[in-house]
Design a protein around this nucleic acid. Structure first.
Lengths: 110, 110
DNA sequence: CCCTATTTGTTCTACAAACTAGAGCTTATG
DNA sequence: CATAAGCTCTAGTTTGTAGAACAAATAGGG
């Protein structure tokens, strides 16, 4: 079952992995916007996170509100087992696609 | 102008880079199918290659027919300057997205 | 030789999935 | 009540996908 993620789907999945406990919508949006060098709309991010949850690669829970200006409850995401596996699969596939292209991206020898 | 390619678009672009003078529709299809571990339909490949040409990342020319069974003229693709640049951009972006995820994919130090 | 079966290669059509923007709603503090 | 942070919804565009149909070549038997 190789689901083959979209570009933004994989990016969002990786962002959640990277952000860990701090992974919620606007944080993912900021992380990806910085890395991609362009602004993602809020809609782009949330629909993508929702799709990943629908696919069972992410799970979400509501956080407690924070005692700061506008600090309402956040929807926190974490990787599921299937999500971690999807990342490993994507890693192999990405390496395979770049293989032989004369790029600097390489798979470190096991 | 960061066009941000789709998953299959980038894969096809990389395949053309890898195959060099041997880059034509069915060869790209076979190359990608092997690497992805699944079969792409002919339509998936050709429409993608056409879109990449429309975007100016690939150029194509017709080859001479080959003197073998079914050896009709092929449509050969090559990278344009913009295509090469797109690959370099994608490389940076891919590395950036994977950065900090605890994977084996790394950017070799310059 | 000439049909026609087979092989390789491409085009065309149509629909499904992913990407995207931004308005608008909600809930918190100042 | 104003402002800030966060999320949901809607709708349009772009990509991904399959497979039938078409085209052009050679093989081989009659």
């Amino acid at each position: 079952m190789t689901t083959s993620l979209g570009t933004l789907e994989l990016s969002a999945l990786l962002s959640v992995a990277r952000l860990g406990d701090d992974a919620y919508g606007l944080a993912v949006r900021q992380d990806l916007s910085e890395r991609a060098g362009r602004d993602y709309s809020v809609g782009a991010i949330y629909t993508t996170l929702q799709r990943l949850e629908d696919k069972g690669l992410l799970a979400s829970r509501a956080s407690e509100p924070l005692p700061v200006r506008g600090g309402r409850s956040r929807r926190h995401f974490r990787l599921t087992g299937a999500g971690s596996r999807a990342i490993r699969d994507a890693e192999r596939q990405t390496a395979s696609m770049w293989d032989g292209v004369g790029t600097r991206i390489r798979v470190r020898p096991a």
